[in-house]
Every structure is written in structure tokens, then in C-alpha cells.
Lab assay of single mutants.
Amino acid sequence: MDETGKELVLALYDYQEKSPREVTMKKGDILTLLNSTNKDWWKVEVKITVNGKTYERQGAVPAAYVKKL
């Protein structure tokens, strides 16, 4: 869990989004888990830093590609 009490997951593999509802992640990324009720796809929040600014993006990733921490 992070400092706000939200559950975290670890990306076990790289994943490139294939639709606007998904998010890209790299192996080793730590993501915030938002919903894991679907056994195949979990909704997560990814933090992306671009030019020193951090953005948050929500989307789905394959459940088999992440592990709860």
C-alpha cells in the first residue's frame, strides 16, 4: 500500500497499450491498483513524468502482467 492506503501492484512485464482504455507500463513499474474485480484486466493508475511534470493516467492492464505488493 502507498501512503494514502491504496493498494500497489508491480509490473512483471512490459505492456504497450492497444486502445485508449489501456495504459502502457514497463517491467518494474509500481502502479496504483484502482479495481481488480475483473479477473483478466485490472484498472490501474500510472504516474508519467514528462519534462519534469508528473501526470496521472488511469487505464486497464492485463492482470497476469502485474502482481499485488
Results as ranks from 00 to 15, higher is better:
residue 4 T to M: 13
residue 65 Y to C: 15
residue 10 L to S: 02
residue 16 Q to Y: 14
residue 36 S to W: 08
residue 51 N to Q: 09
residue 23 V to G: 00
residue 59 G to L: 08
residue 26 K to W: 07
residue 62 P to G: 02
residue 35 N to W: 05
residue 1 M to Y: 12
residue 25 M to A: 01
residue 7 E to V: 15
residue 27 K to E: 05
residue 15 Y to D: 02
residue 32 T to D: 03
residue 63 A to D: 03
residue 45 E to A: 15
residue 59 G to W: 07
residue 18 K to T: 11
residue 27 K to N: 02
residue 32 T to V: 15
residue 54 T to A: 07
residue 4 T to K: 13
residue 26 K to Y: 10
residue 12 L to Y: 03
residue 51 N to E: 10
residue 8 L to A: 06
residue 5 G to W: 10
residue 27 K to A: 12
residue 18 K to L: 08
residue 31 L to H: 02
residue 55 Y to H: 08
residue 52 G to N: 07
residue 60 A to Y: 15
residue 57 R to L: 08
residue 25 M to Q: 01
residue 40 D to V: 13
residue 58 Q to D: 04
residue 55 Y to L: 10
residue 54 T to Q: 10
residue 12 L to I: 09
residue 44 V to C: 02
residue 62 P to Q: 02
residue 51 N to I: 02
residue 56 E to W: 15
residue 52 G to M: 05
residue 35 N to Y: 05
residue 44 V to M: 01
residue 4 T to P: 14
residue 64 A to F: 09
residue 3 E to Y: 14
residue 52 G to I: 03
residue 63 A to M: 04
residue 47 K to V: 12
residue 54 T to E: 09
residue 56 E to Y: 15
residue 19 S to H: 09
residue 62 P to H: 04
residue 1 M to K: 13
residue 35 N to C: 13
residue 68 K to C: 09
residue 38 N to I: 04
residue 22 E to A: 05
residue 49 T to C: 15
residue 7 E to R: 11
residue 36 S to F: 06
residue 33 L to I: 03
residue 63 A to C: 08
residue 3 E to R: 12
residue 45 E to G: 11
residue 47 K to G: 04
residue 19 S to W: 05
residue 29 D to Q: 12
residue 1 M to A: 13
residue 13 Y to E: 09
residue 61 V to F: 01
residue 41 W to F: 06
residue 57 R to P: 00
residue 68 K to V: 11
residue 23 V to H: 03
residue 49 T to Q: 10
residue 21 R to M: 13
residue 66 V to Q: 01
residue 11 A to L: 03
residue 5 G to D: 11
residue 1 M to G: 13
residue 52 G to T: 03
residue 44 V to H: 00
residue 48 I to G: 05
residue 54 T to D: 08
residue 5 G to C: 15
residue 24 T to S: 15
residue 68 K to R: 12
residue 24 T to M: 04
residue 24 T to L: 03
residue 41 W to C: 06
residue 6 K to E: 09
residue 8 L to V: 08
residue 45 E to C: 14
residue 7 E to P: 10
residue 30 I to C: 08
residue 61 V to I: 08
residue 19 S to R: 06
residue 20 P to Q: 09
residue 53 K to Q: 13
residue 55 Y to P: 00
residue 7 E to Q: 14
residue 8 L to N: 05
residue 16 Q to P: 05
residue 31 L to M: 12
residue 40 D to E: 11
residue 47 K to Y: 10
residue 48 I to A: 06
residue 53 K to P: 01
residue 60 A to Q: 15
residue 62 P to L: 06
residue 31 L to Y: 09
residue 46 V to D: 00
residue 44 V to T: 00
residue 30 I to E: 01
residue 67 K to Y: 08
residue 54 T to K: 07
residue 50 V to K: 10
residue 16 Q to G: 06
residue 68 K to Q: 07
residue 25 M to K: 00
residue 62 P to K: 04
residue 18 K to H: 07
residue 48 I to M: 09
